[in-house]
Deep mutational scan, measured.
Amino acid sequence: RERTTFTRAQLDVLEALFAKTRYPDIFMREEVALKINLPESRVQVWFKNRRAKCRQ
């Protein structure tokens, strides 16, 4: 699998959701994945990595 490159628009949507909740449930992830045209698994990993970035 190639490394996913997120567009600015995708990142804006993800960051906005992250500001609301750091742990979105499966339904929220599915919804945002459809909206920004990414698989739900990529959204899940993005959140995992974003939380890790926050902890540093």
Rank of each mutant, 00 (worst) to 15 (best):
W46M: 01
F47C: 03
F27K: 15
P24V: 02
E2Y: 05
A19E: 10
Q10W: 05
A16N: 08
C54F: 10
I36V: 13
K53F: 12
D12W: 01
D25Q: 06
R55D: 15
F27I: 15
N49A: 14
C54Q: 11
M28C: 03
K53E: 15
K48M: 12
F27P: 07
I26E: 13
V13I: 07
V45T: 13
K35S: 09
L34Y: 04
R51M: 03
Q56V: 08
A16S: 09
L11N: 10
T5F: 12
V43P: 02
E15S: 00
P39Y: 02
T7G: 03
F47L: 07
D25F: 01
W46P: 03
R51C: 03
F6H: 05
R50Y: 02
A19I: 07
L14T: 02
P24F: 01
I26P: 06
P39F: 01
R50G: 00
K53R: 10
K20M: 08
E31F: 05
P39V: 04
Q56Y: 12
I36C: 15
T7D: 10
A33Q: 03
A33C: 05
T4S: 12
V43E: 00
P24R: 01
K35L: 06
E15M: 03
E2P: 06
F27C: 13
D12Q: 05
R1C: 07
A16D: 04
R1L: 14
N37C: 11
T5N: 14
A52L: 09
E2G: 08
R42C: 14
F6E: 09
A16I: 04
L14F: 01
R3Q: 15
P24L: 02
N49R: 11
R29L: 13
E2H: 05
V13T: 13
R50H: 06
W46K: 01
L34C: 11
V13C: 09
Q44A: 14
L11F: 04
F27E: 11
M28A: 14
V43H: 02
L17A: 12
K35N: 10
V43K: 04
D12H: 07
Q44P: 01
R29H: 02
Y23P: 00
V32M: 04
R22A: 14
D12M: 04
R51T: 03
P39K: 03
T7E: 07
R55I: 08
T7I: 03
E40P: 06
W46A: 00
V13S: 06
D25S: 10
N37F: 06
V45L: 12
R22W: 13
A16T: 13
Q44H: 11
V43S: 00
E40F: 04
